[in-house]
C-alpha cells in the first residue's frame, strides 16, 4: 500500500485537504471488492487501488461535496458498469483550520493557547513588539509584527480560515475589517460594544459602500452568550462561536435547560 500511505503522510505534512474513499460493501458484479480505495486530492485520484474510470469519476465528484461539507460519510453508489451497488466510505481529511488573531492583548493570550489545544494553526498579528513575542505566545505558529491591516492583507485567506479582530481599539479593528470583509473566510468576529459596532457598520455602509450582506456575516459583538467575566472566559466564548460556525451547532444546552 506504498503509494497510498505515502500520499496520506504527504497530505498531513503539507496541511492539504484530501478525501480517502474506501469501498466497504459491495452487492454487485465482482468488478469491485470491499477494501479497494483511493485517495483524492486536488480534484483527482492521487493513489490507490480503484482503477475503474467510471467509479473514479463518481468518487471524485462525491469527494468534492464531502470536502466542502467537511464531513466524512458513508455513501451508497450504484454504477451498473463499475461494480454495481456498493457502499463507499468517504473520509474527509481537512486541512487544519487556520485562526488569525489580530491584536495581541489580554484576550489573545488565552485564546491562542486554547486554539492550539483545539489543533488550529494560529497566526497572531500585532503592531507592538512588546505584545507580539514568543514569551506571550509560546504556542503560536506565526507571530507577525507590523501594521495590522497591511499584514492581514498579505495573508492567504481560505474557506477554512477563521479571523478574530480583538485589537486595542476600533481605530485598528476597522481597517483590518475593511481588508477582509470580501475574503472567503469562514468566520470573521470583531470585539466591541453593540453601540460602537453599530456606528462602525453605519460608517462602512454609508462611506465605503460595503453591502449590508457583507457586514451581516461579521460576528460582532464577538462570542457566545455565556456571561463571560474574565479574558479566559471571553476566549472560550469566542472559540465556542467558532466551533459553532464550523460544525453547525445551535449553542444551547443539550439538556434544554
Amino acid at each position: 500500500m506504498k503509494g497510498l500511505v505515502e500520499g496520506l503522510i504527504q497530505v498531513k505534512q503539507e496541511g492539504a485537504a484530501a478525501v480517502l474513499a474506501t469501498v466497504v460493501e459491495v452487492e454487485g458484479n465482482g468488478r469491485v471488492a470491499a477494501g479497494q480505495k483511493c485517495l483524492v486530492r486536488d480534484g483527482r485520484v492521487h493513489s490507490g487501488t480503484i482503477h475503474h474510470e467510471e467509479l473514479q469519476a463518481a468518487i471524485i465528484r462525491e469527494a468534492g461535496v464531502r470536502l466542502q461539507q467537511e464531513r466524512s460519510k458513508l455513501v451508497p453508489l450504484d454504477l451498473p458498469l463499475a461494480g454495481g451497488k456498493m457502499e463507499v466510505f468517504f473520509e474527509v481529511i481537512p486541512s487544519p483550520p487556520k485562526l488569525i488573531v489580530v491584536g495581541a492583548g489580554h484576550i489573545a493570550v488565552p485564546l491562542v493557547r486554547m486554539a492550539k489545544v483545539l489543533d488550529y494553526y494560529v497566526v497572531v498579528i500585532e503592531d507592538r513588539i512588546l505584545f507580539a513575542n514568543r514569551e506571550r505566545f509560546p504556542d503560536a505558529d506565526e507571530i507577525l509584527v507590523g501594521d495590522m491591516a497591511e499584514t492581514i492583507k498579505g495573508i492567504t485567506i481560505t474557506p477554512t480560515t477563521y479571523i478574530v479582530l480583538i485589537t486595542r481599539g476600533h481605530k485598528y479593528d476597522e481597517p483590518c475589517l475593511r481588508e477582509i470583509i470580501h475574503s472567503p473566510a469562514k468566520y470573521i468576529g470583531m470585539i466591541g460594544s453593540r453601540r460602537r459596532i453599530k456606528a462602525c457598520f453605519q460608517r462602512f455602509s454609508e462611506e465605503e459602500k460595503i453591502a449590508k450582506e457583507d457586514l451581516q456575516r461579521v460576528y460582532a459583538p464577538i462570542g457566545l452568550d455565556i456571561s463571560t467575566e474574565t479574558p479566559e472566559e471571553i476566549a472560550l466564548s469566542i472559540l465556542g462561536e467558532i466551533i459553532k460556525v464550523r460544525r453547525g451547532g445551535k449553542a444551547q444546552s443539550l439538556s434544554g435547560h
Binding site: K2, L4, G35, K37, T49, L74
Partner: peptide, 12 residues
Amino acid sequence: NIFLDPWWKGQE
C-alpha cells in the same frame, strides 16, 4: 458500524 480493513506492504 465499523469497517475493519487489513493493510499490508505490497498490497497494491
